[in-house]
């Protein structure tokens, strides 16, 4: 039985249909992603899962319970990592874990030992007594994730878990999350980074303007909606549009972005050769594998990151 089921889920703010009738199911132990640009309705969906935001329509079941009616029960099942950190800066790192655990009715005897384990998991053992205000962004993020585990949830909701972190801090965080997945914790991740979705998610939905555009594993989505390889060409901002006519027939599809031209093909090197034999000399050229970014571009005509 799936742990989360959403049917025709809708949230309307005035004229804005922030979430516009989406359906999804998330299985126990699965790592499920909601990939889409800012404002696509990802966070809104996450908050409706925890029942901290009331939906306008449709149905939602979490562990068999409706979060709109049984909010406290549903949230006792969940660990939540919000998009914006909301740690208590006046308290120490360790006390943040303990006091958060109190809201689940957990006794101090359990929480004191648990806090030490969680600090170790978050690689913050030596910072336990420090005030939260003194932590770096990456440390705060790890502490927020550790905090979300205090009630030993079976389902972890992660809203943009690595936004704003440097590449190294992101990899440390992905490693922590991957390990949790390995021990059976269900992960629900929203992100607008395609590399994050590829790293963390078994299965994902591509979401735009409150609607689901596609669903599948990262590999399936790339196979269905893109070619094997992509040739990226830069001719300089003013020339990109002008050369399109000359390269249009190379590859199966072409995308013209402000800064580059993308040629979709199963043979990137061959396409590059074809471009140069036509006497064109791009400033730079790059052959790469297709990514979820290309899937999103194909489905919506826009980039993930504006």
């Amino acid at each position: 039985m799936p742990v989360i089921v959403a049917r025709d889920l809708t949230k309307v703010y005035g004229d804005n249909r922030a979430v516009d009738g989406i359906d999804f199911e998330i299985a126990r132990g699965e790592s499920f992603g909601l990939l889409g640009p800012n404002g696509a309705g990802k966070s809104t969906t996450m908050r409706m899962i925890g029942g901290t935001l009331q939906r306008t329509g449709g149905s939602m079941l979490v562990a068999g319970l409706d979060p709109a009616e049984r909010g406290p029960e549903v949230r006792a099942h969940l660990g939540v990592v919000p998009q914006q950190d909301n740690l208590d800066e006046e308290l120490s790192v360790r006390d943040n874990l303990i006091m958060y655990g109190r809201y689940f009715g957990l006794p101090y005897s359990y929480l004191r030992a648990k806090a030490d384990e969680l600090l170790e998991f978050a690689q913050l053992t030596d910072r336990g007594k420090a005030k939260v205000g003194s932590l770096s962004g990456g440390m705060k993020r790890r502490l927020t994730i550790a905090r979300s585990l205090v009630n030993e949830p079976k389902v972890l909701l992660l809203d943009e878990p690595t936004t704003g972190l440097d590449p190294q801090a992101r990899h440390v965080l992905w490693d922590r999350l991957f390990r949790l997945k390995e021990v059976g914790v269900t992960l629900v991740v929203t992100t607008h980074f395609m590399d994050e979705a590829e790293q963390l998610c078994d299965r994902l939905v591509v979401i735009d303007r409150g609607r689901i555009m596609a669903e599948g594993t990262p590999r399936q989505l790339i196979r269905q909606h893109s070619t094997r390889e992509v040739l990226e060409l830069r001719f300089g901002a003013d020339r990109n549009a002008a050369v399109v006519a000359q390269v249009e027939d190379i590859g199966s599809r072409i995308e013209v972005l402000p800064d580059r031209v993308l040629i979709y093909t199963d043979d990137g090197e061959g396409a590059l050769e074809a471009v140069t034999t036509r006497g064109l000399s791009p400033v730079t050229s790059l052959v790469r594998r297709s990514s979820l970014e290309d899937v999103f571009l194909r489905l919506t005509g826009r980039s993930l990151i504006d």
Partner: peptide, 14 residues
């Protein structure tokens, strides 16, 4: 860490 068995069931926490 993820499931020590020391945490009461969710309905008790709620």
């Amino acid at each position: 860490l993820a499931a020590s068995g020391r945490v009461p069931p969710p309905e008790v926490m709620a």
